[in-house]
């Protein structure tokens, strides 16, 4: 039953279907050199969304993440195949920047992009470096999203770097992917003063008790659901949210209410 104190969990267990829809703010796509994925294509991912009541999914594919020269086009292709379900984050490669071109691509293709994604740890480059300012300026002005990979103890994308960005760009909507995994408590305490910062749940399921603390510290209104699909099954994250010691109201905030508000403001 997963959780005998939750009506949503009870309905899920009975039917095998989540009785509410999901907005997934953090996913990937396609193969990866270090991992075997049983499925990872755009078609696979949309089929998975259909099975699991996921209404929309924002992603940045592995090819874009790891190939700064040719990878981005695969994001575009996937969204064009499934324009009603998918949107992409344009990747930012800190060591291979072209802000004029990349901002233009995002700006001219609102049917493809919801913002940018940046992984400081993967670029070995701090996300609060001023070289990213043109992107942050643009996102601040347009209300589009910045998805950051954030990780505990990182000197590239830890909570101090996020704090520095938010202080300089308070209007910037920042989604903290993985919620500073390992230092989520310190990270939330440092950054929650900025109302445009959201905390996202990929990786969180692998440490029991963290979701409850994130909700306690930040409030469920600041938490967004994400899977890292295809790394982690949608249901792996769903099961965590269903089983955690939080309220059904919190669960609905996380699964879609907070996402609905963000998406409405993006005019998608």
């Amino acid at each position: 039953m997963i959780n005998n104190k939750s009506r949503i969990a009870a309905e899920f267990w009975e039917t095998g279907k989540l009785p509410c829809y999901i907005r997934d703010f953090h996913a990937h796509m396609d193969e990866h050199a270090q991992i075997y994925f049983p499925f990872s294509s755009a078609e696979d991912m949309v089929a998975d969304m259909d099975r699991n009541n996921v209404r929309s999914l924002f992603f940045c594919g592995h090819f874009a993440l790891d190939d700064p020269l040719y990878g981005e086009k695969y994001n575009v292709d996937a969204v064009r195949k499934f324009p009603d379900r998918l949107r992409a984050y344009h990747i930012i490669h800190s060591r291979c920047l072209n802000p004029v071109k990349e901002i233009d691509e995002v700006d001219k293709n609102p049917d493809i992009y919801v913002g940018f994604k940046l992984l400081g740890d993967y670029n070995y480059f701090p996300v609060d470096s001023a070289i990213h300012d043109p992107y942050y300026d643009y996102l601040s002005q347009t209300g589009k999203l910045l998805l950051l990979h954030t990780w505990g103890g990182s000197g590239y994308d830890g909570y101090e770097q996020v704090y520095n960005i938010a202080k300089r760009f308070p209007a910037l909507r920042i989604i903290c992917g993985h919620s500073f995994f390992g230092t989520h408590k310190e990270g939330i305490e440092r950054t929650r003063q900025f109302p445009n910062i959201y905390y996202e749940l990929t990786a969180v399921p692998i440490m029991r008790g963290v979701l409850e603390e994130i909700v306690n510290l930040a409030g469920s209104e600041r938490v967004l659901f994400g899977t890292d699909l295809p790394w982690f099954s949608t249901m792996h994250g769903v099961g965590m949210v269903l089983g955690a010691d939080i309220t059904d109201d919190d669960r609905l905030n996380i699964f879609h209410r907070n996402g609905d508000k963000l998406i409405q403001s993006l005019n998608i």
């Binding site: 997963i2 959780n3 969990a9 899920f12 267990w13 399921p205 692998i206 440490m207 029991r208 979701l211 099954s233 249901m235 792996h236 994250g237 769903v238 099961g239 965590m240 949210v241 269903l242 089983g243 955690a244």
Partner: peptide
């Protein structure tokens, strides 16, 4: 170490 709900749901 981990949430029981995750693998139950999967």
């Amino acid at each position: 170490n981990r949430y029981t709900g995750s693998m139950l749901a999967v």
